[in-house]
Design a protein around this nucleic acid. Structure first.
Lengths: 219, 219
DNA sequence: CCTACCGATCGGTAGG
DNA sequence: CCTACCGATCGGTAGG
């Protein structure tokens, strides 16, 4: 995040790692510890122990425990957002793109279960300003879903009585909730979950026009 | 929970309340404090202060901080479950009952936002055995949704390619997520949220048969 | 002055 | 319920 330029001094043990590598390890370990214990219950001692470092030495890398949480959360949010934005910008009608976004979001969640869990569960542990800094004042994530639904509605692909914001929040709920029950190697693969959720959602909001076209297309 | 018979010692202020009443106040205050700060970040000192009591005196009522969390969580879970079970057992076809359950669940969540938030957010702070004690080994909550979907599927009201467990988890996700964004007095009423979510879900999983009957019924 | 930490301890607070 | 505390550990910082 900030630390000084790595002007390597005399090395003592020979095992000293470059600061960028060590920083990456720190973030990885912090993510894991926050996942296992929750942010508040996790101690810097836990993290330092796993790194083979003394607790106080963490302050060479950070200024506060909160810095670690912020970093974990903003990284996974940034990645997830870029995944769904890329899929939202593909070709196809807005409903096809929404389907694509849902699948991508679910698969990203399943494949990044640990950091995603920290993001979704510990976001509330950040002070409001930093929380907003992560999410963006426009709620970028929610906006991608809502934007596609609004577009689809204007094109007559979504029923007129659907509220796009409420629909977006429903979709986000169903898909985000996956972090609470998905287990790798379990009954459901990320692909299966993504596909069924997308299907449910599209059918749930689609206009008659779209539905009859679907039936015709499948028959 | 267990505490000794109210052997009133010397009364100083003359304002001593009966222990049951005081217990209810304690649970209410604890719920609020856990809601505001999160369970781990909340201290017994916070709770004692709001009750006008010393921290150590809380141990006249409880044996551990965890007891308070367990009580808050199991109470709201029990109430919510009874709401949806009652609605699941009404008359009508399974799909109509599912709709009824969804509406009831959403409305209960919105009207009990504080304890529900503690339940959904802090369940993971309970040790596994007590967590299981609350949820039941059969996952009673999820089971109500899944059971109705399975029944509806057997009657041909739900598409054959829908996995009832995945569908139940999707519905629970969309509806539970409400605790993250619902604000009393905001744009959406509990009724509106419940109604639209139920509509989306039913259309999302219903068979062609049901959908064409719906269209005919509304026309 | 710097890097890369260490050993020790700060003021407070946790559950009990 | 209060008074008077405990063992330990919390996040964070000191000088070297």
């Amino acid at each position: 995040m900030r630390q000084p330029a790595g002007r390597s001094a005399r090395r003592t043990g020979g095992e000293r790692k470059p600061r960028e590598e060590r920083w990456a390890e720190l973030i990885e370990v912090a993510t894991q510890v926050f996942y296992e214990k929750g942010y508040e219950a996790a101690s810097l001692q836990d993290i330092a122990d796993r790194l083979g470092m003394l607790k106080g030495s963490l302050y060479y890398y950070i200024q506060s425990k909160e810095d670690l949480l912020f970093d974990v959360i903003s990284a996974v949010h940034r990645e997830g957002l870029s995944v769904i934005q890329a899929r939202a910008d593909t070709e196809g009608d807005p409903l096809q793109r929404l389907e694509n976004v849902i699948v991508g979001h679910v698969e990203h969640t399943c494949r990044n279960l640990v950091p995603t869990t920290v993001f979704l569960h510990e976001l509330s542990a950040l002070p409001p300003e930093r929380r907003q800094e992560v999410l963006g004042s426009e709620h970028a994530y929610q906006g991608v879903f809502r934007g596609l639904i609004e577009l689809a509605q204007k094109e007559g692909l979504v029923r007129a009585d659907v509220d796009p914001r409420l629909a977006a929040l429903s979709v986000l709920g169903a898909t985000n909730w996956v972090y609470r029950w998905f287990r790798p190697g379990g009954e459901f693969t990320p692909e299966k979950i993504g596909a069924q959720m997308a299907e449910m959602v599209i059918r749930g909001i689609a206009s008659e026009k779209v539905l009859s076209a679907r039936v015709a297309g499948q028959a």
